[in-house]
Design a binder for these strands. Structure first.
Lengths: 367, 367
DNA sequence: AAGTCTAGGTTAAACGTTTAACCAAAACTA
DNA sequence: TAGTTTTGGTTAAACGTTTAACCTAGACTT
């Protein structure tokens, strides 16, 4: 009996020892503690520069940590502290200069503070977006920075995030009803700037291919367009105001539609660069001179606006600034223990980048 | 004395109770256990469909979990199991159709298996890339899928990943020396396909604006270009083979350089779409007819290749397939306990997408 | 000399799961 | 009927940190 017991016991010990030898276990705080003959707690404190640990010990700990190639186990500390130091980011797609630039800037700011980001794409689908939110909550992110899908109307899922008590920050595509922080550009004013520019170029019949009215930002652009026309005493004609999904294809379709009008516009303001590109293609294909016959203005300042012929005038949305501000807004919550969203709307002024498609002087110039 | 003790004790209890009441603590496995009067372990097993738990109990557990809105704490299970279920992805930038599409497909495949991805960008900088790797290792990712920066020559950091014993999978930009899995297209063959196409179009002097020779994929494209010329008995002239950083600007520069030649080429094969765009701009600005005077072929099938005038023939790199295969390759390691990278190179055949810039017949056609 | 600080730690519990090892009762076996 | 399986769990330890609470030796007071 004893012998059997001993054998079993021995085997157990043996397997444990083998494990120790074979699998190069990652070094932990305990390993450091063992080497220095102090407690693990002391090591933890030393690494966090706690005032109750002597400078001598701290130095020793740091040295041994380096020697053993110690990498703190982020999961353990996250579990203990109840914070994952992960921030979720939801965008319609990364494959757009605007979003990828925003993300890059969010990352830059957050990395400095020890946060990492998890990027997810909604592909403009509400369903996918809900899935993204679930995934992020499951991963225990400490906050979510999002730009909503075009489709999203139901805010239930976002309320869920708020209910969890983790900070939620929206940018570009947001909703006032949610009562959370928002960073974006002044869409209403941008329309004014564009109309003003076109009027200065001598245009009188300005059409607008806008986004979905139900999406707040596009609605603002439409309102801005209308008010700006009023301001300049230009007629507001329903046939010149078209709602679009703003894809390339739809841009082509809506432009074709405008060309069929008896009284054609002499300028088109498109609420998105991709649709503006579609419009440009149709104009080119129909040998309509840009901007001589019809001027064209897009929105978003996507890189391709300067690549196509003629290059397209567009609105720069300050993606860098938006990303930075979004990250900073998140960080402003991390200190406070009691999370209480105090509304914080940051509205940036957009910048018009004038290119060939709306400026006759630029047309003939070639670098 | 007793009274003081009691007071202190009471205060402690009180504060604990207040905490319980006030802060809506997330429901844990224990809460479910309490409700059902079973052990936490049983709940855990029930949720994982362990055969040793009765169907009745499982149902009850699932029901209570739902009622209490239970969300498993990913950090805790990750800590316990030693896996974070996070996969790191490193790309030069997300702001390119190729990479963003690869990422999207990686995500799709991994999400299904319960993995999330952390995307980081190197911006083609070796230094940033090292930082990315450190960050990912710190976050305890279970694996890394990467496409290396142009700059990267020193493989020390990647060796570090291998040393940690976590799977490393490279795509597009990889290095044979690392001896890890790789998924990419056949660059050498792609060059053959392109040259073949141009020869079929009657071209005799084919130039190549290539990438850096030290980067394996660009080197392969160059070798393919040379061998294909040989195969068709076309002369190999050093002045027609140019090394470039493949940015738009450099594309412009190198194209300008080619136009200065006494004996101009009648076709240009550019190893990247952005540089091809730069070349296109120069050709357009110089009123050189494309493809009549000079045909143009790019590489990468970026969306803008079909947006510009004329549209640019290019090579589609199967980003979807690359992403999927990379994810699947990672997953193939997650089952095995002993991680032993068994070389697994997946080389896909690329597809030539012929557009106006290299096909006279298409030139006049408009959809 | 007795009391009080202070420096520099130590101890032990906790974060929420998972899992190896154990166990009691019921059901089967021969 | 005694022994063996099976069923359906339970217990307790472990993952690596953090942190509140405690401790001790020496220095400082008065």
């Amino acid at each position: 009996m004893i012998s059997l017991f001993n054998t079993v016991h021995l085997l157990k010990r043996l397997s444990k020892d083998i494990k120790k030898l074979n699998i190069k276990k990652k070094t932990t705080i305990k390993d450091i503690a063992n080497v220095l003959n102090i407690s693990a707690a002391a090591v933890s404190k030393a690494l966090h520069d706690d005032p109750r640990i002597s400078e001598k010990t701290k130095k020793a700990v740091r040295q041994v940590a380096k020697n053993l190639n110690y990498q703190p186990n982020h999961l353990a500390s996250a579990l203990r502290k109840g914070k994952s130091h992960l921030v979720g980011v939801i965008v319609p797609r990364t494959n757009s200069n605007f979003f990828s630039s925003v993300i890059q800037n969010i990352e830059q700011v957050l990395n400095k503070e020890g946060y990492n980001i998890i990027i997810t794409q909604s592909n403009e689908s509400y369903k996918k977006e809900c899935g993204n939110i679930d995934t992020l909550l499951f991963t225990q992110v400490d906050g979510i920075i999002a730009s909503m899908a075009n489709e999203t109307i139901n805010l239930e899922y976002y309320e869920k995030v708020k209910a969890k008590g983790i900070p939620l920050i929206l940018f570009d595509r947001g909703e006032n009803d949610l009562n959370v922080d928002y960073i974006g550009i002044n869409d209403y004013d941008s329309s004014h700037v564009i109309v003003e520019h076109l009027v200065n170029q001598g245009r009188q019949r300005i059409a607008h291919i806008g986004g979905y009215k139900r999406t707040r930002i596009y609605n603002n652009r439409i309102r801005g367009y209308i008010d700006a026309l009023k301001k300049h005493n230009l007629p507001i004609e329903p046939e010149l105001l078209i709602e679009s999904s703003l894809t390339i294809e739809d841009g082509r379709k809506k432009m074709t539609q405008l060309l069929k009008l008896e009284n054609r516009p002499d300028a088109i303001y498109v609420a998105g660069d991709y649709a503006a590109l579609g419009a440009l293609q149709i104009l080119n294909e129909n040998k309509i001179r840009i901007p001589d016959d019809i001027a064209l203005v897009g929105f978003g300042d996507e890189p391709f606006t300067s690549m196509v012929t003629p290059s397209i005038t567009s609105i720069n949305q300050h993606s860098e600034e938006i990303g930075k501000q979004a990250a900073l807004t998140f960080l402003s919550y991390t200190n406070k223990k009691q999370i209480k969203q105090t509304l914080n709307k940051i509205i940036l002024d957009a910048k018009l980048v004038v290119r060939e498609s709306s400026n006759i002087l630029l047309k003939t110039t070639h670098k």
